[in-house]
């Protein structure tokens, strides 16, 4: 079991200082990520779900050390050898970043408008001195074909492309170095629905072809259910529930999961009944209360929830939950 993991995140913490005043004195910390652990296996799609500001993007950025995390370990399995990314220098990092690539949400702002498609897709190959000249062109064209882009766009600039085409450029760029893991941060949120389906299919095809693992960050649960093997739900910097996708959707064990599932508009126009609507607002990260971060919005909360922070614990095979009451309450999944 232990050798089929690709990357392990252990007790990851990212705390940003809050600075105030003329001398920029540190008056506190925003605990953007506060003890997150999970494992992504080979060829697996692992979903990370949560509302804006819950820390999901910060987790992804830590996983390529785009930001330095405060504590914890990120262990990458490089052909059987466990490498801890926490204490790497820049040279080693640049090496490991060939294996871990990012795809971003907004294909409009994540591509340099002054670079042609050829330059954008070819840049990582040049930087890592993999190819140049004619060979580079051939590799870029092969990548474009892999992601379903017509090579006639080679000399175009991103602004001449549609949203879906731009996202394909971003994907081709990420694929060039033959990564093992792709961190996809809301890859379809900015796209039109008819284009979203194309990109989701593409991601699934590429997974087969390139033996990829994905960290799939999204707030859209129906997309997550469609594409992910396992899912973790994040709330205010911590994981509140993690399990196989079907189990999570059918048998949620955390009140937040139940509320999220219930807040998705139903596709059936006959069903206009009232849903369980979660009260309150998305957690304010500068003013987190004691106890469970979710308790101010939780319909089931009792005294203990206000005092003690629940630990993420195993409640069923591969099903993890951080809730004091999980054995005492019956929650509703998407069926029934």
């Amino acid at each position: 079991m232990d050798h089929d993991y690709l990357i392990k995140v252990k007790d990851l913490k990212v705390h940003f200082p809050i600075e105030k005043g003329l001398l920029k004195g540190v008056v506190g910390y925003v605990k953007a990520v506060d003890g997150v652990s999970f494992t992504i296996k080979r060829k697996e799609t692992f979903g990370l779900v949560g509302e804006s500001g819950c820390g999901k993007t910060t987790v992804a950025r830590s996983m390529v050390r785009a930001i330095n995390f405060t504590s914890g370990d990120i262990i990458f399995n490089k052909d059987g050898e466990a490498i801890n990314m926490g204490n790497m220098d820049e040279g080693e990092l640049s090496e490991i970043r060939r294996d871990i690539q990012l795809i971003f949400q907004d294909p409009y702002s994540s591509l340099n408008p002054r670079m042609t498609v050829r330059e954008i897709i070819g840049e990582p190959l040049t930087v890592h001195k993999i190819a140049k000249g004619k060979e580079l062109d051939e590799m870029v064209i092969a990548l474009m074909k892999d992601v379903g882009l017509d090579p006639k766009y080679l000399s175009r600039y991103p602004q001449a492309l549609s949203g879906g085409q731009r996202q394909r450029v971003g994907i081709a760029r990420a694929l060039g170095l033959k990564p093992k893991l792709i961190l996809a941060d809301e890859p379809t949120s900015a796209l039109d629905v008819s284009v979203q389906a194309q990109i989701l299919n593409l991601l699934q095809d590429l997974q087969e072809e390139y033996d990829l693992s994905y960290l799939f960050i999204s707030h859209d649960l129906s997309v997550v259910e469609h594409i992910c093997d396992r899912v973790a739900l994040m709330y205010a910097g911590v994981l509140v529930e993690m399990s196989g996708t079907e189990e999570l959707f059918d048998n949620p064990r955390h009140p937040y999961t139940e509320a999220l599932l219930s807040s998705i508009p139903d596709f059936n126009p006959r069903n206009k009944e009232k849903r369980t609507v979660l009260k309150g607002d998305v957690a304010d990260r500068e003013r987190l209360s004691e106890g469970c971060a979710f308790h101010p919005r939780c319909t089931y909360a009792i005294d203990i929830c206000k005092k003690n922070k629940p630990e993420l614990r195993l409640v069923d095979s591969e099903h993890w939950v951080a809730c004091h009451l999980t054995d005492r309450i019956k929650l509703r999944g998407i069926i029934g």
């Binding site: 629905v193 008819s194 979203q196 389906a197 194309q198 989701l200 299919n201 699934q204 649960l221 129906s222 997309v223 259910e225 469609h226 594409i227 079907e246 959707f249 599932l261 998705i264 139903d266 596709f267 998407i334 069926i335």
Partner: peptide, 16 residues
């Protein structure tokens, strides 16, 4: 082309 909640076939989405 829209993935729907509870649809477990995990087939490829029909696209436009």
């Amino acid at each position: 082309s829209i993935p729907r909640l509870g649809d477990r076939q995990r087939r490829r989405l029909p696209v436009i």
